[in-house]
Design a protein around this nucleic acid. Structure first.
Length: 105
DNA sequence: TTAGTGACAGGCA
DNA sequence: CTGCCTGCCACTA
């Protein structure tokens, strides 16, 4: 498995309940500042196999932009996160700042 | 092989 | 913040 993929999985699994991260934030932390799209792909591919909290990943605006937004909204609310009817949340309040992770750098 | 697409983001108006 | 445009990278037709 590529380091990037492994790092993304590690980062996502480290997101505490009640917090969220943006795609680029995860990508940057995993070693690829412009890998937001790849994070998406990894979520699609690995979320089920690795039991990743994919619902804690939102875009830079704090908005849920996936097809099954209703489902994600439900999961987030289940963790105590307030999501508006427009599928947005308060990033200032919920965004999780990760510690600089070493990984293989 | 090239072209189009997507659960995105940054720069600019 | 919103909208539009461009860059990004992997996947599919």
């Amino acid at each position: 498995m590529q380091p990037f993929t492994k790092n993304v999985i590690t980062v996502i699994k480290n997101i505490p309940t009640g917090k969220v991260m943006t795609y680029s934030q995860v990508a940057a932390c995993a070693g690829s500042p412009r890998g937001a799209r790849q994070v998406v792909r990894i979520l699609h591919t690995m979320s089920e196999k690795y039991a990743l909290p994919w619902h804690r990943i939102v875009n830079i605006k704090g908005e849920i932009t996936i097809k099954d937004a209703v489902h994600q909204k439900t999961l987030l609310e289940n963790e105590g996160i307030v999501v508006t009817q427009a599928f947005t949340l308060n990033l200032e309040q919920y965004q999780y700042k990760v510690e600089p992770i070493d990984f293989d750098l």
